[in-house]
Computed example of a mutant assay.
Amino acid sequence: MSPIITKIVAKALGLSINLLSYVAPAKATALAYRYFSKPLYGKLKRDDLPGILREAQLETILHNGGNFQSYIWPGNETKVLLVHGWESNSARWKLLISYLRKAGCTIIALDAPAHGLSDGKEYTIPRYAEYVNVLIQKHQPNHLIGHSLGGATVLYTQAHYPNPYIEKMVVLGAPSELTIVLNNYRKMLGLNKRIFKNLKKHCTDRFGLDPMSFSAAAFAKKIDVPGLVVHDREDETVAFSEGMRIANAYTNAKFVATKGMGHRLHDDRLYNRIYTFLFNEEDEVSIEEIA
């Protein structure tokens, strides 16, 4: 779908929700939350998996009345757990996996709720973090790598389920503040003040946490595991300032600012940097540029 058509559809949906909010506010709020939390892309078919996932050992794990999909590429005793972002799936790690394999390590990945082969219709960071924590307890990985909302999820996971197994973390292109995500959603749909207020309350009830307090930067403050925070200056999805906010709060992390890689952050230079961070001795530089 082209950006223009996507924008038109979003505005039409927002108009419908706004009109509904005057006659059925509860239904309008539920509809607004549904489109906020339900991904449109990222699902996979088990009989048509990308090649990189067909190379893995697949395991479907039951948890809290649902199930999620995990993938394992066996290797040595060093283990890396990969956590993808919104409207994606574990196949997004194909290029990075080729670098991690050079270290001979065991690579583990999972599909987020309502993504890939995992079930569900709703994506939330707390639910995703439960899945990540299940795999951490099961496999005891040494390193965590998360992209976009997956980056925010690994920060949430380590802050709420501190795991002694984790030695290093990599956070790629992650958003920091839930309020910013909500405001971007509001602008995209053109939601009115009435429905936006109700949506924030619904998120509070759903997460058990005020959106004003739901912050990846706040989670990062609680973490002392060495980290690498990466954000592109030209990220069109998550503002560069969001990455800076996380890096400033994450006192034991180094910050890598890239340019021209966009939000996806697929680049040989960056993957080499991640490899060095995880498997080689580190220098004392705290802020780096990859352009």
Rank of each mutant, 00 (worst) to 15 (best):
I8F: 01
K222C: 05
F36Y: 11
G65I: 07
K79A: 00
R92T: 07
V230C: 05
F214S: 01
R245Q: 15
L44F: 06
Y250Q: 09
L182V: 13
A257N: 00
E130P: 04
H202F: 14
V230W: 03
E77A: 04
E167P: 10
I108D: 15
E288K: 04
H263Y: 03
G262V: 13
I97Q: 14
K138I: 00
Y250T: 08
C105M: 09
F196D: 03
T251F: 12
S213I: 02
W86L: 01
E236Q: 12
I180D: 13
E77P: 02
V181A: 04
S148M: 12
D47F: 08
L62W: 11
Y185S: 11
Y33F: 13
D224F: 07
L81C: 05
K201C: 01
V229S: 09
K222W: 03
K79I: 12
A112D: 09
I8M: 03
G227L: 08
G227C: 02
A218V: 12
F207Y: 03
V170Q: 05
L182R: 04
L172M: 11
M244A: 12
R46V: 09
I246E: 06
S241W: 04
S215C: 04
R54A: 13
S213Y: 08
G173A: 08
P141Y: 11
I52P: 10
E77D: 10
V170H: 11
H115Q: 06
C203E: 09
A30D: 03
K102N: 14
V134F: 08
N67W: 10
K79L: 05
L44E: 10
K45W: 03
A114P: 03
V238T: 15
K197R: 10
E177W: 04
T29R: 01
L49P: 00
A91P: 01
C105F: 02
Q69M: 09
N18I: 04
L182N: 01
Y99R: 02
P141A: 08
Y156V: 09
R34Q: 10
V170D: 08
T78V: 14
M169Y: 09
Y71C: 06
N272H: 14
N252V: 08
I52L: 13
H63N: 14
A26D: 14
I136M: 09
A24L: 14
I145V: 15
L13G: 00
D283W: 15
T204V: 06
N184R: 00
N272T: 10
A220N: 07
T204P: 01
N18A: 11
I166E: 07
G227D: 06
D47K: 05
P226T: 06
C105L: 08
M244R: 15
M169L: 13
E281S: 07
K201I: 05
H202I: 07
F36G: 09
K121S: 09
K200V: 01
L40D: 02
I223V: 11
L172V: 09
A217Q: 04
T276L: 12
N280W: 08
P3A: 04
L149V: 15
Q140L: 12
P113Y: 14
D283A: 12
T179W: 02
I166F: 07
E234F: 13
Y35P: 01
S215P: 03
